[in-house]
């Protein structure tokens, strides 16, 4: 386990990536792994404004308003919250072509212990495909910054939201070590 004093490399990569994509606004509903991202943002990126939403579809609404006002928003959520977001995605984000960098902290994938998280976790990629959102997975701490930056830059250049999945084998180190 990393000591609390050391930021986790994957979380550092996420922050570097979203910053490199030009995003200075992060709208989110938290989960445990994302708390590491929020900590790095708080400690190292004072120019990034973070806004907590009560529900994931609200986060997509706020992000849409930020974009309409000329900003480049990032939306962070747990995979379970994708279920709360589908109407916002299919009737606002996709048809209006409102781009954002969407970071999804995965539950229900490899290493999951809670069976209630599994059905939605398995459905995340098919849902993204079905509603017309491209999705990419960050596979290692070393490549996370590049992957996140590329997904974000592509979203803002093409004006189509892009999803970067953060799997548990990336965000929860104990999944790999079997602790």
């Amino acid at each position: 386990m990393s000591s609390p004093a050391a930021p986790l490399p994957w979380a550092v990569g996420v922050c570097a990536g979203l910053h490199a994509a030009g995003s200075r606004h992060v709208v989110y509903v938290p989960d445990n792994p994302l708390s590491h991202v929020l900590r790095v943002l708080r400690e190292s990126y004072p120019d990034v404004q973070t806004t907590i939403a009560t529900r994931e579809e609200e986060a997509f609404g706020i992000a849409a308003g930020l974009y309409l006002g000329g900003k480049r928003p990032t939306v962070m959520l747990q995979s379970s919250g994708l279920g709360n977001s589908i109407n916002a995605l299919t009737s606002l984000v996709v048809p209006y072509q409102i781009p954002s960098l969407i970071l999804i902290s995965m539950r229900g994938d490899e290493g999951e212990w809670n069976s209630a998280q599994v059905p939605m976790g398995r459905a995340v990629a098919p849902i993204c495909t079905a509603v017309g959102l491209s999705h990419t997975t960050a596979t290692s701490p070393e490549t996370t910054a590049d992957t996140v930056a590329l997904v974000g830059k592509t979203a803002f250049m093409t004006r189509m939201a892009g999803v970067c999945l953060l799997p548990r084998r990336l965000t929860v180190p104990s999944v790999r070590t079997g602790e």
Partner: peptide
């Protein structure tokens, strides 16, 4: 005018984001 055609419930959220940006 920004007319929404879906996303029922989100008009105030869109307005909030816009108010933050502008």
């Amino acid at each position: 005018y920004f007319y929404t055609w879906g996303s029922m419930g989100l008009a105030s959220s869109i307005g909030l984001g816009l108010a933050m940006a502008q």
